[in-house]
């Protein structure tokens, strides 16, 4: 198998690379681009740690081939952090200690921001439902739900 040329945007930067067809997007981001904020927890699409945005929508990067992202726009936790897009969400996570080991956190933030973009005032059940594909072994989820709820309120200009 020979590497195939791909060209895509990653966190707003144009990236040209040669990849083997079997390389998945998670490994491409981590090993080729050294964007190690995208984590790999199961490699079979269950844990959600590798969640990134492709063309604005969250996906499991372990279930997409790098070669399928030709011309796509890929955003990782590094991009969302640097742009400031989720600064308030990260602040809420920090204030609420909504992470312990932090391994699930990039994927969790991706999923949370996805929900907050779609729904301005999700209730706790909707938050839990939207996160239901993102595994966290440390927190028990409640602090994460709290942090997202707080962010939703503050984005909606409300206080709890």
């Amino acid at each position: 198998m020979t590497p195939v040329a791909i060209s895509l945007d990653v966190n707003g930067e144009r990236v040209e690379a040669h990849v083997l067809p079997r390389l998945n997007l998670a490994d491409f981001l981590r090993e080729h681009l050294k964007l190690t904020g995208t984590h790999v927890g199961c490699e079979h699409g269950i844990c959600g740690a590798c969640t990134v945005r492709v063309n604005g929508e969250i996906v499991r990067s372990c279930l997409i081939l790098a070669i399928q992202t030709q011309d796509a726009s890929v955003e990782t936790i590094e991009g969302l952090s640097d742009s400031g897009e989720i600064a308030d969400l990260q602040r809420a996570f920090r204030d609420r200690n909504a992470l312990q080991c932090g391994f699930c956190t990039p994927g969790m933030l991706m999923a949370a921001q996805d929900l907050l973009k779609q729904s301005s005032e999700p209730d706790r059940e909707q938050i839990r439902e939207h996160l239901s594909g993102n595994y966290c072994r440390c927190t028990g989820y409640q602090a994460i739900v709290d942090a997202i709820e707080t962010t939703a309120w503050s984005r909606a200009g409300r206080t709890p």
Binding site: R30, L35, T36, G37, T38, H39, V40, T76, I77, E78, S81, Q90, F93, R94, N97, L99, C101, G102, F103, T105, P106, L109
Partner: peptide, 14 residues
């Protein structure tokens, strides 16, 4: 926390 939330941690797998 900021390091971990921004994907700037260093886990062994990294």
């Amino acid at each position: 926390l900021d390091r971990l939330m921004q994907g700037r941690g260093l886990y062994v797998s990294d």
